[in-house]
Design a protein around this nucleic acid. Structure first.
Lengths: 181, 181
DNA sequence: CGTTCACCATACAGCCCTGTACGGCGATCT
DNA sequence: AGATCGCCGTACAGGGCTGTATGGTGAACG
């Protein structure tokens, strides 16, 4: 699986992102990654000063390629109701893995907590903005966004797992109907 | 802090429960607990065969004294609407610490996953039952319970943190109004 | 009064992880 | 062709955790 012998910084970050999805934040460790890349730790410490520096790079890349990308993708939807529907429907059908992994380590890894705090702020604001477009008062929109985000977290944690596909579709409709004004 | 020299099995479980609340599931470890109790690991391995046996005992005690106790306390409320209101209101005002800690370790510790699965099933069923009492069809009640549980998870993770007391009260009302039929 | 037994300390072995120091090889540039 | 530099292997040091084996101490009991 490890293709070329020579590695660069980005290869480590990529492997770290994969490990994050598979084994969680604890999986973003030097020894396991070196094993997975078919290389020793001597390589790692040439590209990075510490494990935390790698984790920071992995989180930065996640924030760019996943968190922000999803937000921009959503922002492209003109109708605010369709925007919210897409977000929630997606969370029910395919629970966001990365997000769940990060939640697991939130109060164990300060770096994760910081990234997650930014991410949460941006997401709730995006939801609140859509609610305001739908005619809600700012305060009410914020409350609704907070609740929707809480539900989003629960869904990421697999609240809708163990549901048959048919039930899952009905559940998705229910969630949208309940949470979207 | 560690009072008497002589310890029994229950003392270790109690210390484990405290460590669970403070440091999470990873804190339920032999060495740290021995330090906290002012004792060496020699004591531990007389009362327990392994760390997993301790964790199982701690989780069992949590399930009995916290999870089940809350459910019974709720079951004592006659009016189903008041019952749901109490549950959600409580989650907004005082996020359940233990629950959050357990969620963190869910897919890292099989024992925790098992306990949490049972707990989730019992809680969603309790919510669904209340919804049925309120006149909802079984399928609809189940969907609503799943959504409420998802929100509960999100609230446990601190979705309502960083809210001023006044905003928090308004938010609690909003959650109840949205999620309770 | 001595023995037994519950409880605990000590010491050893082992695993996994982070860092650091240094030595080696290969490609590239001159 | 020889020196340079980027990338990597190896070896050492240290820390945290789990277990196991074995010896020691007190209190309670016969």
């Amino acid at each position: 699986m490890p293709s070329s012998p020579r590695l660069d910084r980005d290869a480590w970050v990529g492997a770290g992102l994969a490990a994050l999805e598979r084994d969680g934040v604890d999986g973003v460790a030097v020894v396991p990654l070196a094993r997975a890349l078919g290389v020793t730790r001597g390589s790692f410490y040439w590209h990075f000063a510490s494990r935390d520096e790698l984790l920071a790079a992995v989180l930065e890349r996640w924030e760019l390629e996943h968190s922000e990308a999803v937000l921009q993708e959503l922002a492209a939807v003109a109708d605010p109701r369709a925007r919210l529907t897409a977000l929630l429907d997606r969370a029910v059908r395919k629970p966001p893995t990365y997000f769940a992994r990060l939640l697991d380590a939130e109060d164990r890894e300060p770096l994760v907590a910081a990234v997650l705090a930014r991410s949460a702020a941006r997401r709730t604001e995006a939801i609140a903005a859509a609610c305001r477009e739908l005619g809600l008062a700012p305060a009410e929109a914020r409350r609704r966004a907070l609740l929707a985000y809480a539900a989003y977290v629960g869904l990421a944690r697999g609240a809708a797992a163990g549901l048959a596909p048919r039930e899952r579709a009905a559940f998705a409709r229910h969630v949208v109907a309940t949470l979207v004004p």
